[in-house]
Design a protein around this nucleic acid. Structure first.
Lengths: 231, 231
DNA sequence: AGAATCGCCGACCGGCCGGTCAGTAAGCCG
DNA sequence: CGGCTTACTGACCGGCCGGTCGGCGATTCT
């Protein structure tokens, strides 16, 4: 079912992303994206969006058929991404341990580069109260999954990764650490033991080390007092 | 600032959890908890809660000073948990690898055992749009953190875990996998490659194996075609 | 020059929101 | 028995919600 306005002759219809948007519609979308990302669909009113965009509420409805149509447009824009960079990385040269580090870095960079986009899509995935936007976010998630997990499969196939571990588990552990860093960063910032809130690279380096080599001490390590971790 | 009703002589005041709640208040709280967990604070009206509890809206306000007070009461109840089980596990006997598996299992069991409680608290941590309830959830998070990370520190101290890895990283990788399983389970259920949606034990077993031993193939493994993973 | 179109908006709509008021019935106490 | 307290509710409140209507000025087209 479509909520989009049937396009009038010459009039911009902004629900579907087709023609370049006129200035007003762009402002509205940018404001909507910012507010929906921060406060969720229910936490934002059209009045809020209009005020943030510097236009009237009626103008919002001039460009978009409904609040929900506006929201779905912000999600469609957020979902306009490809897995091309991941695919290039996977297909490129390099050892698999290095590729894993690069992949984890790429994913977290993208998340931190556009937190609004990340938040919009993650919220749709994690909040299962409604179906709204869920399909869009799920398409992105699945597209990324295929590209990302192929690295784990390739590494296993080449013998670089263990053959007795499901590549999907490796993928999930990697993506879980990234998501948790992104989502919990502000909470963890208050934790004096968590020194990585402003050091995503250090965080990923440490996580990838654990994912590759595990926590268990090598069997050859002498029992007894361990060395203190490097800080 | 407190929104709670000053307690009238003999009258139940349900905002603060003190005296046992009368039947009506209990029904309201149970309905509130279910609806807030599923739809968030903004996505639920007092009308919805009253209807689900089988009482009038005015009765909700008879027992609770405001919608927000009701919400905070559901969060306080959700936050009434201790880290005693984790502390017992950490202090008990057993090798650390086994303890890690047991800890991860305990955490995921508790999440799956009361998904509403989990969702209420996680939402407060992950959605940073408001401060409401954030402090309550953060207290729970930090209390659990201290208990959980102590296992990683203990394992490292005993030489069972590597000395060159920050125990907080190990902890985060473990908790991240648990959170992601809990939050993304329904999304991942649609993924034919993810065989664990209904097998949390198998999932955790595989994740703990990776956390302990890593993904990298042992150096002694013959290069070339890897064995297929056991399905 | 006049008509048509476009981008925009103030005023307004009905409905829902959180919350209050004034009241009822039942139970308890002196 | 009368007064008080408690648990509860229908009706109602002002404000905000999503959304519409009728109109304006500028621009474009014939």
């Amino acid at each position: 079912m479509t909520d989009e306005k049937p396009p009038a002759a010459g009039a911009g219809d902004c629900d579907a992303i087709t023609a370049p948007l006129c200035g007003g519609a762009r402002q509205i979308l940018d404001a909507a994206r910012r507010l929906f990302a921060e406060h969720s669909y229910e936490g934002v009113s059209v009045h809020d969006i209009a005020a943030a965009a510097g236009v009237s509420k009626a103008n919002v409805f001039h460009h978009f058929t409904s609040k929900e149509a506006l929201y779905l447009t912000t999600l469609r824009e957020a979902a306009l991404q490809t897995a091309a960079e991941v695919e290039s990385l996977v297909a490129g040269p390099g050892d698999h341990a290095g590729k894993l580090r690069a992949l984890a870095g790429l994913i977290l960079d993208k998340m931190l580069q556009d937190p609004q986009q990340t938040r919009l899509l993650l919220r749709e995935l994690l909040e299962h109260g409604t179906e709204r936007g869920r399909e869009l976010a799920q398409q992105v998630f699945e597209r990324n999954f295929q590209a990302e997990v192929s690295l784990f499969r390739q590494a296993q196939h080449c013998g670089a990764f263990r053959g007795d571990v499901d590549p999907v588990i490796g993928w999930l552990a990697m993506i879980a650490a990234n998501m948790t860093f992104f989502l919990c960063r502000d909470v963890l910032r208050h934790n004096p033991d968590f020194n990585y809130a402003d050091k995503p690279e250090a965080f990923l380096s440490a996580v990838c080390d654990v994912l590759l080599h595990g926590l268990a001490a090598p069997a050859s390590a002498a029992p007894g007092r361990s060395r203190e971790p490097v800080s």
